[in-house]
Design a protein around this nucleic acid. Sequence first.
DNA 1: ACCAGTTATAGACACGCTGTCCAGGAAAGT
DNA 2: ACTTTCCTGGACAGCGTGTCTATAACTGGT
Lengths: 212, 212
Amino acid sequence: MATEDRRSRRTRSALRRALVDLVLERGYAAVTVEQVVERADVGRATFYTHFSDKQSLYDDLVAALLADLAARLEPGDTAGPGFTGRPVHALFEHAEAEEATYRMVLRGDGDGRALRSLTDALAGAALRVFEDRVADQGLAPRVDLRVLARAWVGEQLAVLTWWLAEAGRPLPRADVVGMLADLARHGRWWATGFGDDAPDAPAGTDSSAPLV
Amino acid sequence: MATEDRRSRRTRSALRRALVDLVLERGYAAVTVEQVVERADVGRATFYTHFSDKQSLYDDLVAALLADLAARLEPGDTAGPGFTGRPVHALFEHAEAEEATYRMVLRGDGDGRALRSLTDALAGAALRVFEDRVADQGLAPRVDLRVLARAWVGEQLAVLTWWLAEAGRPLPRADVVGMLADLARHGRWWATGFGDDAPDAPAGTDSSAPLV
DNA sequence: ACCAGTTATAGACACGCTGTCCAGGAAAGT
DNA sequence: ACTTTCCTGGACAGCGTGTCTATAACTGGT
């Protein structure tokens, strides 16, 4: 009387794992349903009793991942070993735990659908937090909060992608997360090694400040 | 005696435009070569004399875009109306000029290949600039420069994506670029409205600082 | 241990898109 | 005008898809 027949669970999870593996090997577009069922050791007809097509399996996978992430981002949640409750930490922890799937998503496989979902979810959450904080503490934002949310999330995901999928985790997770925190607190100018007094640009036209 | 036969040029550019249009309408995966040649009003056999497949046409398109962007990022270049020579400005200007193609790339169509190329190119350039600056001015970076470069580029592209492809350019370009500059100079803390004195986290364990 | 209900499977089918080839007709460049 | 280059429609085999069938295997509950 468990939620599902054991055979269904086995089949579905075998298909999910096979898809992730194959996508990481060949890229989403190059993967066929035939390859997936062969890798999962499942009959082709069986595939179609569970999913309508490749996209459907992919969406299912991503939805599960996002639901799992959302649960970890819940403020009250402190389950899991070493879970800190801080969003960026939670994201990086989750990514490390589900490395294969994250690699797939962050690479943009599936025409970027999954990556967009992830970005939207995080940016939406960030925007809500910013707005609440501004309201609660009566702050006067100096930058459009929508831009702020996107920038902050873009920063996280870009670093996460580099760290997890490209460079192969060359630094401890805590260090990378700490750098993101420092960056958020002090800005890039400070991080590069300049003094705390950031040079206010001759606001308006053409200072030829490099990279800005 | 121009570099190419006029017919070739016409055909190629028709195919390029057709691909971009169709991808924006239906997504890269859903576009077929047959649809492209029909939209471009070109024989199917003709397509294959120019490109080996859909991917090839796509790659050609992206390569041209990146080459164009690289030219605009050259320090010495001051061509074009209102071109400022500042990299972020140049990127946003280019994106506005080539809006359709940028939408396609930023959305991650084509399994993210193009977006990754763009990211890598910008991150590589940023890293080089950072390293040069640190060396020239004898700075002591407070954050790993590789992380810094990825974060900075991720920030730009995330904001660009939101501004160009999702929100439909709700703010003037100069404003958005200015916000990115402010953010780089002062950090998110300052941007949210807090004072200049960023609260240094009890560096190490678990301050429950939200969103960090 | 058994049984009814569910799930897995192989094989066959039509269909759509791919990538290649060819022989002609059309339009460039000089 | 004339040669070279490009475009074109049609035909081809090949592959992957999504659906359907009848049969076999397994499952949870009695």
